[in-house]
Design a protein around this nucleic acid. Structure first.
Length: 192
DNA sequence: CACCAGATCTTCT
DNA sequence: GAAGATCTGGTGG
């Protein structure tokens, strides 16, 4: 069952930690995310709709994929009104052999730990941009309970650098970079 | 382990 | 012309 995508980016970024994301039955548990919205100077949507960011201004629950630095890809989940959540790292669980083959490496701890790395491992490229996340080839597995979540500064940006909109599963060994455990925050309540 | 350059190209100034 | 929501392989400690 897919998560509820239509919510503020910061809330969705937290709600996705611990959820399992599969693309063509390959993927893992989301352990790191970042939030971006239209009022955020660091967001691609900040300057308004453009050709590249059109998907961000489309309906929630779709894939916003863009090319970065000319050679890598980044995968985001849209959540409406120009907002989206960047998926930064997965703990590999499904199709590990396929991911290792695509990445040409064995090291589990770096297989999907980084936005470009996970796109390469799952085979996500520009052709995925704009597609519906609530239908195949995407599959979602809900998380169990409320995982401990840390918040910190986003990575690789130069504007709004102090906004603590990066979220990570506490003590996960699959983060792209450590998050200070000083700013651990409670996860949102799940309806039981 | 830290730091640095190179890859490679679209978008923005 | 420069910067960018990055990754990898090299060099030096």
């Amino acid at each position: 069952m897919a998560p509820s995508f239509e919510q503020p980016a910061e809330a969705l970024a937290r709600a996705l930690i611990g959820v399992t994301l599969l693309f063509h039955d390959v993927g893992g548990e989301i352990v790191e995310t970042e939030a971006y919205d239209a009022g955020d100077p660091a967001s691609h949507s900040f300057a308004g709709p453009r050709q590249r960011n059109a998907t961000m201004f489309g309906p929630p629950g779709h894939a916003y994929v863009y090319r970065i630095y000319g050679l890598h890809h980044c995968f985001n989940v849209t959540c409406g009104a120009g907002a989206a959540v960047l998926i930064r790292a997965l703990a590999p669980t499904h199709g590990v052999a396929a991911m290792r083959a695509r990445r040409g490496m064995d090291d589990l701890s770096r297989l999907c730990s980084g936005p470009g790395r996970l796109c390469a491992a799952l085979g996500i490229d520009l052709s995925v941009d704009g597609t519906d996340l609530r239908a195949p080839p995407f599959t979602w597995v809900e998380r169990r309970g409320d995982p401990p979540i840390a918040a910190g500064r986003r990575i690789g940006i130069s504007r709004a650098v102090d906004r603590p909109w990066r979220f990570g599963l506490v003590d996960s060994s699959f983060l792209s970079r450590p998050i200070s455990s000083d700013d651990t925050v409670p996860a949102p309540r799940l309806s039981k």
